[in-house]
Design a binder for these strands. Structure first.
Length: 557
RNA sequence: GCGCCUGUAGCUCAGUGGAUUAGAGCACCGGACUUCGGAUCCGGGUGUCGGGGGUUCGAAUCCCUCCAGGCGCGCCA
């Protein structure tokens, strides 16, 4: 990457100024090559001189001047200036942009990838909607986010595993409540009246699940008592159906998980008990008031947490500990990323504490909490509750506005930010959605490439990239050149929302180029050929960034 | 009460590894092609970057404090 090349030049220029090793290391870490907002300030800039001013006790402008004097020559660097309070501004020859395009054309679908991750083995757990109904728009945000983050990590040389954790264990009271709700509907369908559970799931899909059971088993389970065992039986009967629906919902969003991990299996295989025994033996857990407690209070949590209730039933933390042991010990991931909804926010400190109590380096675990999505309809916020049943499923949304728009929309905002989703707007203005702007840029380029196949004057001409000097060509080249650094940064910052923004800017550069630079011109085959290579490179980058977002790159629309 | 997220143009939001003159989309108004797709392009912005204080040569960005909105704080998950 050109930034690395410039940083290395500066690094060499710094060495004579630094007397001791500590300063050298600080400088090595802190050399950051930035893109100035104002083109007059060069193609790249660096503020290292100002950062060194303090430690060296010298005037930043003088330091900057010394750096410029010491800077090794580089054929791509046209000139270097000291500006403002002590910036070092680089002005490069356009050749660097032409080099970047050549690289893009050579690397094709791999352009943008880097080896930053060094093969790190990362597991990323997301969606995690309980097996109690379809994925709906209130809990779907983690899907496109997690999937795209996984794509980014793969592009930066991480070995990634996507995982869905299924809360089908006995500790999940929601799963049992769902079973009880279905049982009530099942008996209603068979003509019997059973009081619907308090707080039960009201949604229409519960009736549909009950109907499935009627179709499958008839009256076989009519006389099962409506107690805890009954609820458990019904949730168990439906488990596979519900999971299949979840899997279909994920597929509809364009997400394929590598592993669907069952909480129930953790219990069935005795892994939960095993971990509890281990923690008791090591002193990380203790017994009090007939319950088993984990010493999370010693690791930053507010208080110790219950692992096994006084009635002998393990809590969800016990499950999660067994699950973590499986991830960190058994499967040996270097890094584990948990992506949770805002309702799990308070759970992060105790999960970290639990990992610490287990002796796991918590630096290996990352927790990303996405913020709530608020849906507006008719100008009013929707109140979405799975239990009350007033939900909009992700599939309904996809049918409304399409998968590409759904993913683009969910990705557009930082996960830290609350997301306002105006359903009316999304339905009415789907053609106005920025995703079409980006996709249209791709189809236009494809159209030119198709057209180029039909002309006869390009035969022997070799596309000399140095002919590309029009401002709109240079602007487009610049976006192509910036792309690899953008992918790296989006991955490092866990910031998939950078992608839609970059994609839009790239599409804008494409549209401007298209408008002002005629590509196929019989009177100038050499320029046509060079521009055709720019078209090919731009198409590659658009396709690559759309691929990262899990959005299609159509050749025709 | 405690904790976290958010507060930037009419609306929805980027920017928050300090750094030279704060951006984009939407909406609104006005323009543009006899050739590769008009789902396009060009022009139009006087913003208390929530308020106040601090650090700094320099703060939307870092620190403190206050205000507003959202969410979370169980032997529920």
């Amino acid at each position: 990457m050109i930034q690395d090349r410039l940083a290395n030049l500066l690094r060499e220029a710094c060495l004579p100024l630094l007397s001791d090793r500590q300063h050298v290391e600080e400088a090595l870490c802190e050399i950051r090559i930035e893109t100035p907002g104002n083109p007059e300030h060069g193609d790249f800039a660096c503020n290292i001189a100002m950062q060194l001013a303090g430690p060296l006790g010298a005037n930043p402008r003088q330091i900057a001047q010394k750096l410029v004097d010491n800077l090794p020559a580089d054929p791509l660097v046209e000139r270097v200036e000291v500006a403002g309070p002590g910036f070092v501004n680089f002005y490069l020859s356009p050749g660097w942009l032409h080099d970047a395009l050549a690289q893009c054309l050579e690397q094709g679908e791999n352009y943008g990838c880097s080896d930053f991750g060094d093969g790190e083995k990362v597991q990323i757990e997301f969606v995690g909607a309980g097996p109690v109904g379809p994925i709906h728009i209130g809990n779907a945000r983690g899907g496109p986010f997690g999937d795209t983050l996984a794509n980014l990590l793969e592009a930066t040389d991480h070995e990634v595993e996507r995982e869905y954790y299924i809360n089908d264990g006995p500790t999940n009271t929601q799963f049992q409540l769902f079973g009880a709700s279905v049982q009530a509907r099942y008996r209603e369908l068979l003509g019997e009246k059973l009081d619907f559970p308090e707080q039960g799931y009201q949604g229409e899909y519960v009736v549909e699940f009950a109907q499935q059971l009627v179709n499958q088993y008839g009256t076989q389970y009519r006389d099962v008592p409506a107690d805890a065992d009954g609820a458990s039986l019904f949730s168990g009967l439906l488990r596979d159906n519900v999971i299949e629906q979840l899997r279909d919902d994920c597929t509809a969003m364009g997400i394929e998980f590598d592993v669907w991990f069952s909480e129930k299996k953790l219990h069935a295989e005795g892994l939960v008990e095993e971990q509890i025994d281990r923690l008791l033996a090591s002193g990380a857990a203790y017994e009090k008031d007939d319950a088993v407690w984990l010493r999370t209070g010693e690791h930053g949590d507010e208080e110790d947490r219950v692992l096994v209730r006084s009635d002998g039933a393990p809590t969800y933390i016990a499950s999660d500990i067994a699950y973590a042991a499986n991830k960190f010990y058994t499967r040996g991931f270097d890094r584990v990323i948990y992506i949770w909804g805002p309702d799990h926010f308070g759970y992060v400190p105790r999960m970290k504490a639990a990992l610490a109590a287990m002796g796991i380096d918590i630096e290996r675990a990352e927790f990303i909490i996405y913020q709530t999505v608020r849906f507006l309809e008719g100008g009013e916020p929707l109140s979405l509750s799975k239990r009350r049943g007033d939900i909009v499923t992700i599939r309904e949304l996809i049918q409304d506005i399409g998968r590409d728009a759904v993913r683009f929309f969910f990705l557009m905002r930082s996960v830290d930010a609350h997301l306002d989703f105006d359903l009316d707007l999304a339905r009415q203005q789907s053609a106005e959605n920025p995703v079409y702007y980006v996709q249209y840029a791709h189809t236009r380029l494809c159209s030119i490439l198709r057209e180029a196949e039909t002309v006869d004057y390009l035969g022997e001409v070799d596309g000399d990239l140095s002919l590309l000097i029009h401002p709109d060509e240079l602007a487009l080249l610049r976006k192509l050149a910036d792309y690899p650094a953008e992918v790296l940064r989006a991955a490092q910052e866990r910031a998939p929302h950078r992608l839609p923004h970059f994609a839009r800017e790239l599409a804008q550069a494409v549209h401007q180029f298209y408008t002002n630079c005629r590509v196929l011109d019989r009177d100038d085959p050499a320029l046509s050929c060079a521009r055709l290579r720019l078209v090919a490179g731009s198409r590659i980058v658009l396709a690559n960034i759309l691929e990262l977002m899990g959005i299609t790159a159509p050749e025709r629309m």
